[in-house]
Write a protein that binds this DNA or RNA. Structure first.
Length: 213
DNA sequence: CACCAGGGTGGTT
DNA sequence: AACCACCATGGT
C-alpha cells in the first residue's frame, strides 16, 4: 500500500502548505463545498464573494433568500439552479439542527449521516464539510486521490475508497494534516498528467511512481 | 476550438 | 455494477 506519511511530506516539500479552507466561518465553508462542486475554485470564490456582499453567508438569512435571486448571485460558480437549491436545503438543515454551534457538538458519525441525507451532498462533499468546516479527522477522497493511489501502487491497480481511507487515516490521524494532504493531492493532481495509465515525462515531483524517474 | 474544474443525481444497460 | 446525461460558467 501507499506510504501516506511520506506522500504528505513529499507533497509539502514540493508545493508548500496550501492553507485550505480560506473562510471565516464554518457555514461559509459549508456553502463553499456546494459551490465548488465540479467547479474551479476561482469561480466558486466569486460566487462566495457575491453571497458575502449580500449578507447571505449566514444560514438564517440564506434560508430565507429568494431562490431566483440566489441563482443569479451564484451564477459564476455554474450549475446555478442545482446549487441554489442545494444551498437552500443546506441552510435549512443547519437551522433545523439549531445552528452551527449545535452541529459542532454532534459526533462525526452522526453529523456525516445527517449530511449524507441531504439531496446534493454526497460522500466527498460530506467529508469535506466534516474536515474543513468542523475540523474532524476525516479523509476526503476524490478523483485525484484515487488516481494518485493507483499510480503509486505497484501495478497501477485501483483501490477501493475504503482501502484508501484506511491507508490515509492509519497514517495521518489529525485534522490539520488531513487538511493539507487533500489540498496538496489536488494541487498535484491539477498539474500532473491526465493520461492513463502512466506518463513518462510530465510528473513534476520526484516521488511520483508514474514519472518513472 | 476542445477540454476541464476541489460532484451529485437519476436513468439505462 | 458500469456507464450515461444533465447541471452551466469561466479559464486555458
Amino acid at each position: 500500500m501507499v506510504d501516506v506519511g511520506r506522500l504528505l511530506d513529499d507533497l509539502l516539500a514540493s508545493y508548500g502548505s496550501q492553507g485550505w479552507w480560506p473562510a471565516e466561518h464554518p457555514f461559509e465553508v459549508m456553502a463553499g463545498t456546494v459551490l465548488v462542486q465540479r467547479t474551479a475554485w476561482n469561480n466558486a470564490a466569486r460566487a462566495i464573494a457575491r453571497l458575502r456582499s449580500n449578507g447571505l453567508l449566514d444560514h438564517e438569512r440564506l434560508a430565507r433568500a429568494d431562490e431566483a435571486t440566489l441563482q443569479q448571485l451564484i451564477r459564476p460558480a455554474g450549475f446555478y439552479r442545482a446549487k441554489a437549491a442545494r444551498l437552500l436545503r443546506l441552510a435549512r438543515f443547519v437551522g433545523r439542527a439549531g445552528g452551527i454551534e449545535v452541529l459542532a457538538t454532534q459526533s462525526t458519525v452522526d453529523l456525516r449521516h445527517a449530511l449524507l441525507a441531504l439531496d446534493g451532498i454526497g460522500e466527498e462533499t460530506a467529508d469535506a464539510v466534516l474536515l474543513y468546516a468542523f475540523a474532524r479527522p476525516v479523509a476526503v477522497i476524490d478523483a485525484y486521490t484515487r488516481r494518485v493511489f493507483a499510480r503509486m501502487s505497484a501495478s497501477n491497480r485501483e483501490f477501493t475508497d475504503a482501502q484508501i481511507r484506511g491507508a490515509i487515516t492509519g497514517a495521518v490521524s489529525d485534522a490539520a494534516r488531513l487538511n493539507e494532504l487533500h489540498a496538496l493531492i489536488n494541487e498535484h493532481g491539477k498539474r500532473s498528467c491526465r493520461k492513463t495509465p502512466v506518463c513518462a515525462t510530465c510528473c513534476l515531483t520526484s516521488w511520483c511512481a508514474f514519472s518513472r524517474g
